[in-house]
Computed example of a mutant assay.
Amino acid sequence: MELSVLNIKGEDTGRKVTLSDAVFGLEPNEHAMYLDVKQYLANQRQGTHKSKERNEVAGSTKKIKKQKGTGGARAGSLKSPLFVGGGRVFGPKPRNYSFKLNKKLKRVARLSALSLLARDNKVALVESFSLDAPKTSEFKGILSNLQVAGKTLILLPAADKNIVLSGRNLPKVKISTASDVNTYDLLNTEKLLLVEESVNVLETLFSAK
């Protein structure tokens, strides 16, 4: 698959880059992508939810009525889950939601997501650029020149502080480095904008078995 390289003015530079079929031309594995996204979202959970059981609720443990002869069910104390203000039965407790996935499966998931974007013609290439200072308006102008709209994931070959600071306030734009790309971000975007050198980073990263 060949893509034309654009400059920051949105003009075709006349150069083309061939995307490797080993990275952008695979048959997507939906189950691998599902598992990788599931793990990513699970890792975002704090797991700090907690409700009080009957031994943790403040209150008297005095028996509220005699055991027999009242015509009603027996009751031990007001901390019983049956009463308003009592403890909760089998309530949530702090827990870790993370789980393990094999590296090979995660690699397949990322390659599947990249191939899916390429198959749907949602990948664009822009030549390397830099900003002298963090400037959101200037960065927004570049995206406008490239006719980028909607959710956009921009992959840089390496971290660039000025670019990251310029784009972090834009609600539908996410900026990351090619080496840190994850399946969730790839599937949660409408357009993948690759800075030219990031293609080599991706191909080098995923060519390693």
Results as ranks from 00 to 15, higher is better:
203 E>D: 12
143 L>M: 07
103 K>C: 04
57 V>G: 07
141 G>V: 02
91 G>T: 05
120 D>R: 09
177 T>W: 00
179 S>L: 05
35 L>F: 06
59 G>H: 00
53 E>C: 05
97 Y>L: 02
191 K>A: 14
9 K>P: 01
109 A>P: 06
9 K>L: 11
18 T>Q: 15
118 A>F: 07
151 K>H: 12
180 D>Y: 05
187 L>C: 13
156 L>I: 14
55 N>Q: 10
64 I>W: 00
70 T>C: 07
139 F>E: 02
8 I>S: 14
174 K>E: 10
12 D>W: 02
103 K>Y: 04
169 N>S: 12
130 S>E: 14
131 L>T: 01
164 V>W: 00
75 A>Y: 00
176 S>A: 13
61 T>V: 07
12 D>P: 03
199 V>T: 10
200 N>E: 14
36 D>P: 04
107 R>Y: 09
92 P>S: 09
37 V>K: 02
182 N>I: 13
26 L>V: 14
78 L>F: 03
82 L>R: 13
119 R>G: 05
27 E>C: 08
86 G>Y: 01
158 A>T: 13
156 L>T: 12
123 V>K: 07
85 G>W: 00
74 R>V: 05
18 T>G: 15
76 G>H: 01
204 T>P: 01
150 G>Y: 08
208 A>T: 02
126 V>G: 13
78 L>R: 03
60 S>N: 00
105 L>R: 01
82 L>C: 05
156 L>G: 12
22 A>H: 02
61 T>S: 07
164 V>Q: 03
114 L>Q: 10
93 K>H: 09
10 G>V: 02
113 A>N: 09
112 S>P: 12
136 T>G: 13
41 L>R: 06
120 D>Q: 13
